[in-house]
Amino acid sequence: MSETLPDVRTFRLSPAVVMPLRERLPHVATQTIDAIMAEVPAYREAFSGDLGVKIERAVRAALGTFLGLVSRGHGPDPQSPLAPALEAAYALGRGEARNGRSLDALLAAYRVGARVAWHELAAISVSGGQPAATIAHFAELVFAYIDDLSAASVAGHADELASTGRARARHLERLARALLAGENEHKLTEAAQRADWSPPRTLTAVLVPEHASRATLNLLDRRTLQLNEAGPGAPERSVLLVPDADGSRRDALLGLLRGQSVVVGPARPWSQVKASYDRTVRVLGIARLSSGRGVVDTEQHLAELVLTADPQALADLRARMLAPIGDTSDASAAKLVETLRSWLRHQGRREAVAAELFIHPQTVRYRMTQLRELYGDKLRDPSWTTSLIIALSAPDPA
């Protein structure tokens, strides 16, 4: 059964044990560095470059700190040299994270350093006639010290990643807000640089329920921007800004989102994605689509968008075009409106109108006779019939 390593802060070695070790410290440091260079390839370039001298000094300082720590007098010492060593190891871990490296190489270097340093220090102790019990105890202290340094570096690495991740997430959110606010391209470019985000050619806005935003985000390009609260026009919706989903890639995006309850806007140049977002909000607000499920492609609803661009103008046009019929809430008048819409849609083909309305062709003929009496020659006027088509293309008001 393995035993827990001792706390290096609580153990002391006599000056007689430490003195020969301190005298050979430069040799031990050189051997340690050579072993790390040979066994940890990631550090070969660092040792051979400008950082080599600094790293060599750090190794010597770490060994010197250890010898200083274990050679102090007994009793509490507020000036423990371990704290600076731990701070240096913590900073080393943060530096590895800032440089985009994992801890694999650093922890491997610690392991190699501990093994080689112990081998050299043990050889010195043996040659000095130290008893086996003292040498074994010394080994425990070496590995306990390396464990402390490793733990400090792990903490530094984790803290730097967490700090960097939080800062970048804030910058990405600010960029998304700036895009949806329609900021000018200069400000957007600066925001993108602060977020370390490379602008794509286009962005496509996608509205998704807040509860499903994370799962949906996982399906998309990793550069996709997210804003948890889309805005007042899209309650309980998040907005995702998807890079380069234009052309044939739009079909791929729609396929990825299949089964999701989303509204997908058009692709727009990245700095103009507000136009894509505005369209998704418009489509979401169309009454008969707002309660729908599944993928809603705004490109399939351009006619509704045009017709509802000015609701009051549409209402006025409808009232003007249907004025000859009178009160359209009356049942007989409503049937005339229904027949007129179908007659315009089918370009006057009586059989097609009858089939659509499930009525006899003679009934169609009778109703159209009534409508011609009400409208007169206007039903043969292209300009008038165009306005009628537009007025009747929108759904009947509730």
Score class of each variant (00 low, 15 high):
His186Cys: 13
Val8Gly: 05
Ser291Trp: 14
Pro209Asp: 05
Val283Phe: 10
Tyr277Gly: 11
Ala178Arg: 03
Leu374Asn: 04
Thr30Ala: 06
Arg365Asp: 14
Gly326Glu: 08
Ala315Asn: 04
Ala323Lys: 11
Ser125Asp: 01
Pro6Val: 09
Leu188Pro: 08
Leu302Ala: 03
Ile325His: 03
Asp148Thr: 01
Arg57Met: 07
Ala178Met: 03
Ala61Ile: 09
Ala88Arg: 11
Asp50Lys: 03
Arg341Gly: 04
Ser150Trp: 01
Gly100Arg: 00
Arg60Thr: 15
Ser248Cys: 00
Leu322Glu: 10
Ala398Phe: 01
Lys378Asn: 08
Gly95Met: 13
Ala151Gln: 07
Gly294Ser: 15
Val263Glu: 05
Pro41Asp: 03
Pro200Tyr: 03
Gln79Ala: 13
Gly326His: 03
Ala319His: 15
Leu307Pro: 09
Asp316Cys: 04
Leu314Met: 15
Leu141Asn: 07
Tyr110Lys: 10
Ser80Arg: 08
Gln312Trp: 08
Ile146Leu: 12
Arg170Gln: 05
Arg214Ile: 07
Leu227Tyr: 02
Ala191Gln: 10
Ala192Leu: 09
Gln130Glu: 11
Ile359Gly: 06
Val239Tyr: 10
His171Ile: 02
Leu13Ser: 12
Ala334Ile: 03
Arg194Trp: 13
Val273Cys: 09
Val263Cys: 13
Gln130Met: 13
Glu160Phe: 06
Val239Gln: 09
Ser291Phe: 15
Ala354His: 04
Ala205Met: 13
Leu188Ala: 01
Ser383Thr: 12
Arg170Trp: 01
Thr65Pro: 13
Ser383Ala: 13
Ala61Leu: 14
Lys274Leu: 15
Ser387Cys: 10
Asp148Trp: 04
Ile359Tyr: 03
Ala61Glu: 14
Leu217Pro: 07
Ala144Ser: 14
Gly68Trp: 05
Glu183Ile: 04
Arg258Ser: 08
Ala230Gln: 04
Ala333Trp: 00
Ile36Arg: 00
Lys54Val: 08
Arg201Phe: 02
Thr363Val: 09
Met1Lys: 07
Ala38Gly: 07
Ala205Pro: 11
Gln312Met: 13
Leu51Thr: 04
Ile135His: 00
Thr386Ser: 10
Pro199Phe: 04
Ala91Lys: 13
Ala108Phe: 02
Tyr366Glu: 13
Asp396Arg: 13
Asp77Leu: 14
Leu336Tyr: 02
Val306Cys: 06
Val116Ala: 01
Trp118Thr: 11
Pro20His: 08
Pro311His: 03
Leu371Glu: 02
Asp396Thr: 07
Gln347Thr: 10
Phe11Arg: 14
Gly68Ile: 08
Phe11Gly: 09
Arg282Tyr: 02
Val126Tyr: 04
Ala333Val: 01
Lys378Cys: 04
Ala62Asn: 12
His137Thr: 11
Ala323His: 09
Met321Gly: 02
Pro15Trp: 10
Ala123Arg: 10
Asp244Gln: 01
Gly64Tyr: 05
Glu96Met: 11
Ala35Tyr: 00
Ile146Pro: 06
Ala191Trp: 03
Trp384Pro: 06
